[in-house]
Design a protein around this nucleic acid. Sequence first.
DNA 1: GTGTGCGCCTACAGCCTATAGGAAGTTGGG
DNA 2: CCCAACTTCCTATAGGCTGTAGGCGCACAC
Lengths: 197, 197
Amino acid sequence: MPRVGLSPDLLVTAAAELADDVGFAQVTLSALARRFGVRTASLYAHVDDLDHLRAQVAVRALAELADRTAEALAGRSGRDALAALAAAQREFALSHPGRWQATRYPVDAATARASAGPRIADLNRAVLRGYALPESEQVHAVRLIGAAIHGYLDLQQSGSFDHSTPSADQSWDRAVDALDTLLRHWPTPATDPEPAS
Amino acid sequence: MPRVGLSPDLLVTAAAELADDVGFAQVTLSALARRFGVRTASLYAHVDDLDHLRAQVAVRALAELADRTAEALAGRSGRDALAALAAAQREFALSHPGRWQATRYPVDAATARASAGPRIADLNRAVLRGYALPESEQVHAVRLIGAAIHGYLDLQQSGSFDHSTPSADQSWDRAVDALDTLLRHWPTPATDPEPAS
DNA sequence: GTGTGCGCCTACAGCCTATAGGAAGTTGGG
DNA sequence: CCCAACTTCCTATAGGCTGTAGGCGCACAC
């Protein structure tokens, strides 16, 4: 009986592909084992348990998303950068739906810190440099932009836009446009000259 | 052995509560049966299968969300209405996390049409009446507003904001503010005087 | 060739969904 | 009042999933 040559890394890779095929929630050790022509129990030599596997897929998905976003952002700024950021994330979500879902899998604090999550936040923040936002408003803007992009892709993926007239794709460009406008007119609250000391 | 008095409606209600307790994904026929002190098999007399039960919970959750949103919107307009809409959805998401998750459970087309989903879209649209948006831009605005609110609450629930400094709550008001501003300055594309005939 | 270790195996326990068919509880007609 | 029919919940069973324990054999080092 020839050995298959499993490894933690290989399993995570295959799990990510599986997620794209059947959905992140349907990633199962059984299915993964089947893919390798191996018994489920054999996987436990390389993976702690299902939750751990999912967390690893999440971490990898975040890293890939960060990579692609960084690549898309290189050399761009302002509206251009915003559009590139949005396009990169959209492209990722559409071409890798399972990994995209994995992106929101809750992982423990230490893993989260060590993941590419913060890097993605930094990239979002970098986009804001093209807009004149006060330092104190940046977190809020980053979050809203992130939420809008994320929410849009999420609603689209779950089919919420399937039952109304213009296709989800058509609204996307308008949405990016709107976000650009928003960043240009970002409402700064009554400026607090001296932050409470 | 006294009868418990199960019914489809009762089961859906209990399933929704269970979802809020343990998460929508953890809603299980076993757990539901346990809650009633009844064998799992007994539930099949009242419910088709797990998927059907989840779909019913989704439908109910949408209806509740629509009700609360409608209530919050009554007699308000403009910025006020937007804030009320956002607050109602946020309040729902925080107090009923399981139902909130259920909201995005994909259901078949017929069920979706008959659900309160369209009603929620209408309510979102109603908020826009307080802003001067051309008819053709409304769908896009509805979607973006929906996506932003949804995405924000989703990211918050999955803990994406837990590891950065200002609490998720603090950004929320700024986000609503920003959305209001956006609707006031909604970018209309180069007006196409005569739609292609 | 032989040993040693790792890679994958079988076996099993426990929980889950789902189906089939049986036995009580409930209700209405006579 | 009582029995028949119906409904509700039961037991039994099959099959898929996670996870653990322990065994066998392939592959490489010597």
